[in-house]
Amino acid sequence: MSDTPFAVAVELDADGAHPATSTSSRALSPRVLSALVASAERLGFTAATFDDAPLPVGGATPRLDAVQRAAFVAPLTTAIGLIPVAHVAFSEPFHVATQLASLDWASNGRAGWIAAASGTGREAAAYGREALEDADLRRERDEVIEVARRLWDSWEDDAVIRDVATGRYLDADKLHYVDFEGANFSVKGPLITPRPPQGQLVVASEAGSAGVDVALVAGADVEAITDAAAGARAAGTALVWAEVEVALDSRGVSAERRLDTLGAWPESGRLRHVGDASGLVDRVTELSRVVDGVRLLPAEPDVDLEEAGRAVLPGLRERIGFRSPRPGDSLRDALGLERPLSRYAAPATVKEFA
């Protein structure tokens, strides 16, 4: 674990992890979004994640697409990673890959992707499709990840030449044809966007997903997370992050009292910390022995984000050597992941991206 930088990502969906914090005005507010992300970057979090769902939760609350939210804050930030959720079951894989590549360009190489798959009857009906069983959803997610990776590689790093003398923008020999046939879709041709700055975006998904860089594991206690992390590593996943819901004592008010005011917080199967910052430092330090990072899901982002940055991150710097990302670093740099070569490039012609 010591050779891999420990990551502390924070979920910045404006609604918060507690259902009582959901309001349509906050979910649609660019001011709220930019303020949260600016605060997370100032405090030193490794990355911000942005949750999403195929349809509005509860059917009434409007929201903005997570990739759009990440793209909006990309030019407003310089160091923090930006990792939106993008669902794959009923989306066009080519469009998903293109949007994510564009996000990596907009953020100068700080983009990631949480690949999610949900296919309930209600969601399927909205897209004019049939509901998908769990096995079909897993296969669809894995196939979309695979075709996205092929599309990101379909341009070699030096395909764009901008040769004024000959009037050529790109070297057509360095574009590669992707011909992918999945169970429910097919994709042909190269991407319409040059290869992302990172070469391949950092892809995260739940444990058991194929082709991901980060496995997100959930469990109600450390023992369950330890078992899930071991399974993810055995499957060959490079990094493992634990998901932790958080409500912290803040501004003289205990977390328990805050939750009494908010009302019931339904169980989600994730580890949950309700209490002071030092207790969360202890919990994350314990987790650092079995995972490479955590994704914190604050009950109330306005409150818990500031408290975690003020009191938890400094403790983790002391206890486990946590390091904040630096301006100009890619997300891969921050996570200790190498930038991969395009699978289509001949080794002798590969050049370092600049």
Rank of each mutant, 00 (worst) to 15 (best):
S39A: 13
G208P: 04
E318Y: 13
V187L: 13
W113H: 01
L313I: 05
V147N: 00
R317H: 08
N108L: 12
A235K: 09
R319N: 06
W113Y: 05
K174E: 05
P266S: 13
L55A: 11
V274K: 05
E11C: 15
L287Q: 04
R323T: 11
D221F: 13
T285F: 05
A38F: 11
R162I: 15
P196E: 06
E223I: 11
D3R: 12
I83L: 01
L170F: 15
L132H: 02
A79I: 03
F90C: 08
A229E: 02
D249E: 11
D179V: 15
V32H: 15
F94W: 09
L191T: 07
A264K: 10
A40I: 03
E223H: 07
A20L: 03
S205C: 11
A235G: 07
G236S: 07
I225Q: 00
S324F: 05
R317K: 08
G119N: 02
R63F: 01
A9E: 01
V222F: 05
R323H: 12
L151T: 11
G269V: 10
A66V: 12
P298D: 07
L33S: 04
L201V: 01
R42G: 03
R26C: 07
A60E: 14
S268N: 14
R326S: 08
T4Q: 09
S342E: 05
R139D: 11
G275N: 10
R332G: 00
A264E: 10
W105L: 05
L12P: 00
V244K: 02
V187A: 04
V294D: 03
V214S: 02
D65M: 12
Q99K: 15
W152Y: 06
V85T: 11
A35R: 10
D282H: 11
A106D: 06
S34G: 06
V294C: 06
L271D: 08
L337T: 05
L239N: 00
R150C: 08
T21A: 13
V240W: 00
A308F: 05
D179H: 10
D333Q: 10
G58K: 13
T237Y: 03
A116T: 13
A308E: 10
P197F: 02
A354S: 09
V160P: 03
D302P: 07
D260N: 10
A101P: 02
S154R: 02
A7N: 01
P194D: 04
V8E: 00
R319K: 12
E92W: 08
V244W: 01
L100W: 08
S205H: 14
A159G: 15
A159R: 02
R323L: 09
G59Q: 08
V187K: 00
T349E: 13
V212F: 04
A277R: 00
V37I: 14
T193R: 03
E245R: 08
S342M: 13
E300P: 02
L341S: 14
D158L: 05
L33F: 10
F322K: 03
R233D: 05
A60V: 15
G128V: 07
L170D: 15
F94Y: 06
A218Q: 10
E140T: 14
S24E: 13
L280A: 02
L296I: 06
T61Q: 14
V37G: 01
L43M: 11
V57K: 06
P56V: 07
I114Q: 03
R31D: 14
V274S: 12
R149F: 04
D329I: 01
R129Y: 07
V73I: 11
E156V: 11
L305N: 01
